[in-house]
Write a protein that binds this DNA or RNA. Structure first.
Length: 436
RNA sequence: GGAGAGGUAUCGAAGCGGUCAUAACGAGGCGGUCUUGAAAACCGUUUGGUAGCAAUACCACAAGGGUUCGAAUCCCUUCCUCUCCGCCA
């Protein structure tokens, strides 16, 4: 969300930015926002005049009553009552215009960073860098759920009966690996100086509407029946909610947090080949990182943060690459965003495992996340977030890239970094022989 | 879930429906006087937001409604915190 004053003063720039994102249909919103703002101010000014008058007269009435001049007081009362209707109408108009303006303002995209490549959609995203060898083994790699099945590690059928499509039971070594990955990711981030945090897994509707649009909410969030509560789609929701309408002293910045939570997503409208298996499901777990920092530091943090993701995956012997989202693929709130993608030897392509975003001050403006500077002046913080690891996808990458085959049994080499979290296990062997 | 108490600025804590209650009084912070220096003492200053070049005006006493010429104060709804009881990982 952009500052309305900024929109008024930089009309053309805001429009150019919209064009760069190939969202021409949003162009009229700019003029509409400016118009609403003017109207809102006009209503406010008139209402304030009336209020000032009312306050003044009311005070006088008090004095008159004190002196026992009842008749004079009654006269003054009439004066105020006459304006009451106009004031009431104006107040309603004020509220209405404020809400409308905010709605329009939220639809106007944030100014993207100069460095972001211009492109229409995700097909024009740009590879930044590759890390590690994209190896494809001699032997055949089964589909990830089939690998898990060979280890007696998954039961989607039972999950389907119990909870429906989009759930799984993870079992045995695979379940343990899942837990190991989250624990490892947690410690990895703690070692980077982040504060570990377990947030609420449900949030109120006012927090939900603060952090996402109605459409996003409808497509993602599960509501708890009979309560004003929603299951979180990512811990970022509760983590950023922690800072709504707060003023943080500058010396406490940057706030670097890493949070664990299960994530619940309806995934309304999601489909396609990649949706098979456990690539996209209704419930998964995730270790997340968020940073709240001074504006001049946000790009440094952005680079550090996606770097952490790369480092984490490399420490588990998984080849990755970093992909920059082009203007057209960038969500409205974002200034710049990188996806970190893991290599899939099975599909022989990369798939998204982390999404690192710099939101500039747009999210902070929307949610009132402020900083009090050393000089006492207040300003909006910059906010960033990134996935540390989301185990289902991480498991896919981990299994495929560390898979071995002896002609009969598949096995998985446990990367050194993960071994302490697996009770020292260096290798796990499939329970069932592979029959092709 | 039941019963009670409470929610006011950085913190503690006052605040008969009006008349210097943007909010006393403490404490803390900041600036200053005094001092060789420090402490003490004394003086001043110290909420957020909106509009405006500014003067200033308006809004906000958990949140939202209502009563009233006028609400921190009265009424209603909701939320939160604490204590006790019940239930339960």
């Amino acid at each position: 969300m952009l500052d309305i004053k900024f929109i008024c003063e930089n009309k053309e720039l805001v429009k150019e930015n919209i064009k760069k994102k190939f969202k021409e249909e949003k162009l009229p919103l700019v003029d509409e926002a400016i118009r609403l703002y003017d109207e809102k101010r006009a209503a406010e000014n008139r209402a304030n005049e009336l209020r000032a008058n009312r306050n003044k007269v009311s005070k006088e009435i008090g004095v008159l009553m004190g002196k026992g001049l009842k008749e004079e007081a009654e006269k003054a009362k009439k004066l105020v009552t006459e304006q009451a209707d106009e004031l009431k109408l104006l107040s309603e108009k004020e509220t209405e215009l404020t809400a409308k303006l905010r709605e329009v303002q939220m639809k106007i995209p944030n100014i993207v960073d100069k460095s972001v490549p211009v492109g229409k959609d995700d097909s024009e995203n740009v590879e930044v860098e590759q890390f590690g060898e994209k190896t494809v083994p001699e032997f055949e790699i089964p589909y990830h759920t089939d690998i898990m099945a060979l280890f007696d590690g998954i039961d989607k059928e039972a999950a389907g009966r119990v909870a429906g499509e989009g759930f799984y039971y993870l079992m045995g070594d695979i379940a343990r690996m899942h837990s190991a990955v989250t624990a490892y990711a947690r410690d990895f981030m703690i070692n980077k100086g982040f504060c570990y945090c377990i947030p609420p897994f449900m949030i109120r509707s006012n927090v939900v509407t603060g952090v996402m649009s109605f459409e996003e909410m409808d497509a993602m969030m599960y509501k708890i029946e009979g309560e004003d509560l929603y299951l979180i789609g990512t811990s970022e929701h509760s983590m950023i909610g922690k800072f709504i309408d707060t003023i943080t002293p500058e010396e406490k910045l940057p706030l670097t947090l890493t949070s664990y939570s299960p994530c619940f997503r309806k995934e309304k409208g999601a489909h396609g080949i990649e949706e098979r298996g456990i690539y996209r499901i209704h419930q998964f777990e995730k270790q997340e990182m968020i940073v709240i920092c001074r504006p001049e530091e946000s790009m440094d943090w952005f680079n550090k943060m996606w770097g952490y993701s790369v480092e984490l995956f490399r420490s588990l012997d998984i080849p990755v690459r970093t992909l920059e989202c082009c203007t057209g693929d960038l969500a409205d709130l974002k200034v710049k965003s990188y996806d970190v993608e893991a290599w899939s030897p099975k599909q022989q392509k990369y798939f998204e495992v982390c999404s690192c975003s710099n939101l500039g001050d747009a999210q902070a403006r929307r949610l009132g996340i402020k900083v009090k500077g050393a000089d006492g002046k207040k300003y909006l913080a910059h906010t960033l977030n990134n996935t540390v690891v989301a185990p289902p996808r991480m498991l896919i990458a981990l299994l495929e890239n560390n898979l071995t085959f002896d002609g009969e049994y598949y096995g998985v080499k446990i990367p050194k970094a993960l071994q302490p979290y697996m009770g020292g296990t260096e290798f796990i062997k499939a329970k069932t022989k592979y029959k092709g």
